[in-house]
Structures are given as C-alpha cells and as structure tokens.
Design a protein around this nucleic acid. Structure first.
Length: 440
RNA sequence: UCCCCGAUAGCUCAACGGUAGAGCGGCUGACUGUUAAUCAGUAGGUUCGUGGUUCGAAUCCACGUCGGGGAGCCA
C-alpha cells in the first residue's frame, strides 16, 4: 500500500465534489469550540480543512484537536469550492491521521530576528516567504539551463577541486589532496569551460563556486552558484547580446510561471516587465563622467580618476540611472583578469562588461571576450605574476586551433535576490555559507 | 583586514545606577466561519562570559565569545 496522497493541493480544482486524501503538514490551526480550521500545506499549496464536531467521529475530532503547528498528517475529505477560503477551495474533513507530531515548533507566525531564523534555517525553509523564494530560485535555475539548451549550448561540468587559482586574485579555500599537495575549491569554472567551448562551440557550466573573501555584505556568500556560458567565435558585442537575451528570458519566464510566488513576496512586477533587450550600456569612461557629475547623490560615490576601480556605491549610482539592467563596459585592462582581450583600437581597455541589476542589487554578471592569441596570453600571465607552467593545458587551447571567443558568469543568488526583491542574498539559497555562518 | 551596532523569559522587545516587565508563544478553560481569531486564567529569568568601578550593576568600564550592518574584493 502507498501513503501517497491521491492528489496535490495545487490540483484540487479538478476534484470538486470528490473525496480525496491529502498528505502534508499543519501550517496553521484555529479552534472555535466545536469547529476546527486547519491550514494544510503539502509543498504545492495550502488548503483550509474544516472539521465540525458533529460531522466526524469523536476520535477524528480528538486527533484534529491534538494537531500542532507543523505536525504531519493525512487528511481525507470532500473538496468544495468556497468563496470564503483564501485559495477558493476547502476540504470538508472526514478522517484525520497523524503521521508525525510536532511539539513546540520554534518558528511561530509572529516576528523573529534574523539570527534566530538562520539558526533554524532547516525549519525556516517551510515558511511561506522562504518557500516562494526558493521556488523562484528553482525556476531561475531551470529557466537558465533550458534556455541555453534550446540555444544549442551543451552543459560541460568543470572541477571543483583545482590545483591553482584560476585568476590569481581572490582568496581561495585550501585543502590537502593526498600526496599531490594543496588543492583549492574552484572560484570559477571559466578556464575549463573554454576547453569545452573548443569541443562543442557553445557550452556552459553550472555549479557552486567558492570565495574565501572576508566579504560581509548582503550581496556576498562564500559559496554561491554560478552559470558560465562560453561561445566560440563570439565577440564582445555578441557576448553582450547573448547576456541581455539570456537575462530577459529568465525574467520573463519567472513572470509567466511564478507570479503567485512573486505576489507572496510582495514583489511589484513592473520593473521586471521592463527587462527586455536591448539593455543600456555605459563605458567605463562615461561612468567616470557620470560619477563626477552626480557626486554627493549617493554616499561614498566619490569621483574617481581613470584607472580606479568602481566601488559598490559607484555601481549603485550607475544602476540607479536606469530602469533595466545596465552594462558597464570597457574597463581599464589593468583592473581585470589576465585572460580578458584588450580592445585592439585601444589596448588600455579590456573588451569586458559587468551587468548591474536595477534597484541596488549590484553586479549580476561579469563577462569578457577572451584573449585568443598565444603570445599575448603568455605575456599577460607573466604581467600578472602567474606561473605559466600551471597554465600549459590552458595555453594549449591557443596552440591548437585558437579562435576568438567570449563568455560570462552569472551569479544565481544575486539574480534571484533582484527578481524577488529580497534585501539579503542569504535567503535566496537553502543553506547559505557566510563569513560567520556555516551552521546548519 | 578595517569601521559601526547588538546580546534581558521559547520569540520580539522594554527597563539606562536603586525590588526584572510587556506583547506574542506555551499550558488550562469558553466559543459553529477563523485567516497572526477573540475572551478569561496560569506557568515561565545564571539579564552572553570573565574581571573591574560602586553601598548597590541588566544598566558604567575593560577584555573575550557569538551575531548583525557596511567597506575593500567580487557574481
């Protein structure tokens, strides 16, 4: 015999007048003497179950009375359309079967502080808001992969344990690797995905990446998920077009399929509906001019001289000028990773771009055209103080049929934070890893 | 690594040098339409730790622990 429910709550519209068995958890219960209301959730939705004392067996009423918040149970009853019910349907209960009791559930319907909630993340994910948020995350992940697959991309997975730093910049998590010395947790799959690109033309990797930076802001996690497409023969211009189509497709799919969740999150879809190509672009040079003209508007967005990197307040100021994501392109090459292609017309700048989300959610994509010339790439490795010996496999990609190519990396959590209007990135992943949090 | 802030009942907070409190939650009872129900009653404390100042410390000081916000860095 199976314990599975006969239907899920999301599908109850097709069962009006029929008796079904639901299986789930008590989200909320209200007793009014001889009448009990149970909000039952099963992951697909929530339905109000109604129990009148005179209409059920005494044991059934007693079982229902004893149910506490988050007790799991199986409830059998008749589906009835009812305008008074939040979801439009109610269940007239016939029998209730307790599956697992829940005593003193810590997360009550009242307010809680973030520290308490993070300590109970394993339970917090059941709450309506977190449930909606993680549902959108799953949609973003599915949309991203399916869109790329439809465009002819092949998923090409890259290693998480690597022998050297990919870009030689960020701090890495280190671990021992048998007799081979130190291994590092990958901060990007990009170099490896370039090898896949030379095999498949269009590829992407998708998985967790690790940054041992002591970043302590609402935009940072030490472990986050990144999707990194890479395209052979694609120029900087092709790269930007791919990015704006990609991001727009993801946003539009969430609007189409997860409007109920956005409503739960009280996210106004207006800004998201504007997210269609082309996205505005601003060069690093023009960004500096804009920052100089708008000084004092945002605290910390002080004027910069050419060659300075943009800080978080500067990015915030730039993003605030637009109602769609905005590309900031052609940064000074010296600020960027060794593999970024210098502009042939102006080698001081790189053919790269960051995509800044609106409403202060920061950088959601970083991308560039890559250096395809062997001699130039060797020179750049040397300029960055990197050991070319460790990169011979990577240089092989330039020795055997090299082509111009471009790619980018998109941080899933930042995209989800932006789409859902979530203040802090930590809520956009089931179990966030942060500077001062690795439990649960 | 640097700057700022916090820790009091299960939770959210108040008390700011003089007897440790409220709301919610829990428990008991009433209630046939509740949505964070309502009403009545009831239990519940090593004020993060260590040391110091003081007649007296939740309160002031130092150090520590844990956590929150931000910078830098990045997606």
């Amino acid at each position: 015999m199976s314990l599975l429910p006969t239907t899920s709550i999301a599908n109850l519209a097709g069962y009006v007048g029929q008796t079904v068995t639901l299986a789930g958890w008590v989200y909320h219960k209200t007793e009014k003497g001889k009448l009990i209301f149970i909000q039952l959730r099963d992951g697909s939705g929530v339905i109000q179950c109604v129990i009148f004392k005179k209409q059920v067996a005494e044991t059934t009423f007693a079982t229902a009375q004893a149910l506490t918040q988050e007790s799991s149970c199986r409830i059998t009853g008749a589906v009835r359309a009812d305008a008074r019910a939040p979801g439009g349907f109610e269940l007239d209960v016939e029998t209730v079967e307790l599956v697992g009791a829940s005593l003193d559930y810590p997360i009550t319907p009242k307010e809680h502080g973030i520290e308490f909630l993070m300590e109970h993340r394993q339970l917090w994910v059941r709450s309506a808001r977190q449930h909606a948020l993680l549902r959108v995350r799953a949609e973003v992940v599915a949309a991203a992969q399916e869109w790329l697959n439809d465009q002819g991309f092949v998923r090409f997975d890259t290693p998480l344990l690597t022998a050297t730093a990919a870009e030689g910049t960020s701090n890495l998590f280190a671990t021992t690797y048998f007799d081979l010395g130190t291994a590092y947790l990958a901060q990007t799959g990009q170099l490896y995905v370039e090898a896949g690109m030379m095999s498949f033309g269009k590829v992407y990797c998708f998985g967790p990446t690790f940054r041992a930076e002591k970043s302590k802001t609402r935009r940072h996690l030490t472990e986050f998920w990144m999707i990194e497409p890479e395209v052979a023969f694609a120029t900087h211009e092709d790269n930007l077009q791919l990015q704006e189509q990609f991001v727009s497709a993801i946003v539009q799919r969430v609007l189409e399929r997860r409007s109920a969740e956005l409503k739960t999150l009280e996210r106004d879809p207006t800004m998201l509906e504007r997210c269609v190509p082309p996205f505005p672009r601003i060069s690093y040079d023009d960004a500096l001019a804009l920052i100089a003209a708008k000084q004092g508007v945002i605290e910390g967005a002080t004027p910069l001289t050419w060659g300075d990197d943009l800080g978080a307040p500067h990015e915030q100021l730039i993003a605030a000028q637009f109602e769609r994501p905005v590309f900031v392109e052609r940064y000074p090459a010296a600020l960027k990773a060794f593999y970024m292609q210098p502009d042939p017309q102006r080698p001081a700048v790189a053919l790269c771009a960051d995509l800044l989300a609106p409403e202060g959610y920061g950088e959601i994509i970083g991308g560039s055209q890559r250096i395809h010339d062997l001699a130039l790439l060797e020179q750049r490795l040397h300029d960055h103080g990197l050991q070319t010996a460790a990169y011979q496999w990577y240089l092989d990609l330039r020795r055997y049929g090299t082509v111009p190519h471009s790619g980018f990396g998109m941080g899933i959590e930042r995209v989800v934070a932006w789409i859902t209007g979530t203040h802090h990135i930590r809520e956009t992943i089931p179990f966030p890893r942060m500077l001062y949090r690795i439990y649960p």
